[in-house]
Amino acid sequence: MSDLDQRLLEAHARQDHAALVTLYSEAAEMSEDEDSRGFYLTHAYIFALELGHPAASTLHGKLKATGREE
């Protein structure tokens, strides 16, 4: 298990949604394929929306740019 995977699991266990926005965004940037990137971006975006996080609009733009929303 990677360090990032461990940090994601720990953030989920703590229900630390702010950390999850950051960690899923980090995972998306590290992804080597489009499907994984989309998966991680979607999760980051959902947590950002729930929090009213300022990154929500940026994440939404990234999802649109990858064709995840038209």
Results as ranks from 00 to 15, higher is better:
32 E>Q: 14
54 P>N: 06
7 R>K: 15
22 T>W: 01
13 A>D: 15
61 G>M: 07
29 E>C: 08
9 L>S: 13
21 V>W: 02
5 D>Y: 09
70 E>N: 11
21 V>F: 00
26 E>A: 09
2 S>K: 04
51 L>C: 02
20 L>N: 01
27 A>Q: 13
45 Y>E: 03
40 Y>Q: 03
8 L>F: 05
47 F>I: 03
22 T>C: 05
17 H>F: 00
32 E>D: 13
7 R>A: 03
59 L>M: 02
57 S>E: 14
55 A>T: 00
26 E>Q: 15
31 S>F: 00
65 A>L: 08
34 E>H: 10
46 I>Y: 08
51 L>F: 03
5 D>S: 14
22 T>R: 14
39 F>R: 14
18 A>K: 09
65 A>V: 02
37 R>N: 05
2 S>F: 05
61 G>W: 01
15 Q>I: 05
35 D>R: 14
7 R>S: 00
53 H>T: 01
7 R>E: 01
33 D>K: 08
38 G>E: 00
23 L>E: 03
18 A>E: 07
55 A>W: 04
63 L>E: 06
69 E>G: 10
23 L>S: 05
58 T>W: 06
30 M>A: 15
7 R>D: 02
27 A>D: 03
24 Y>Q: 08
16 D>N: 12
68 R>T: 01
2 S>P: 07
12 H>Q: 15
16 D>L: 03
38 G>V: 04
62 K>D: 08
59 L>N: 01
11 A>Y: 04
46 I>G: 06
41 L>Q: 01
3 D>P: 06
53 H>D: 15
70 E>M: 10
11 A>T: 00
35 D>C: 11
23 L>N: 00
7 R>Q: 15
13 A>I: 06
38 G>K: 10
61 G>I: 00
31 S>H: 01
32 E>R: 15
16 D>F: 01
50 E>W: 11
33 D>F: 07
57 S>D: 13
13 A>T: 10
25 S>T: 14
20 L>D: 00
64 K>H: 10
3 D>F: 12
66 T>H: 11
39 F>H: 13
64 K>S: 10
35 D>M: 13
3 D>N: 12
45 Y>I: 07
47 F>N: 12
12 H>I: 11
3 D>G: 11
12 H>M: 14
40 Y>D: 05
44 A>D: 06
37 R>W: 00
44 A>T: 04
64 K>L: 10
48 A>P: 08
64 K>I: 10
47 F>D: 11
62 K>F: 03
16 D>T: 03
66 T>R: 13
69 E>D: 03
5 D>T: 12
31 S>Y: 02
70 E>K: 10
34 E>C: 03
63 L>G: 04
4 L>N: 05
67 G>F: 07
29 E>G: 15
68 R>C: 08
19 A>L: 05
36 S>E: 15
2 S>N: 13
54 P>R: 08
35 D>Q: 15
44 A>Q: 03
20 L>W: 01
70 E>L: 12
70 E>A: 13
36 S>G: 13
45 Y>P: 02
33 D>E: 14
26 E>F: 05
21 V>M: 02
11 A>E: 02
50 E>Y: 08
4 L>S: 04
55 A>Y: 00
35 D>V: 15
24 Y>V: 03
8 L>P: 01
52 G>W: 09
57 S>T: 12
30 M>Y: 07
33 D>Q: 13
2 S>Q: 04
39 F>A: 12
60 H>G: 09
69 E>Y: 10
50 E>N: 11
29 E>F: 06
41 L>R: 06
58 T>F: 09
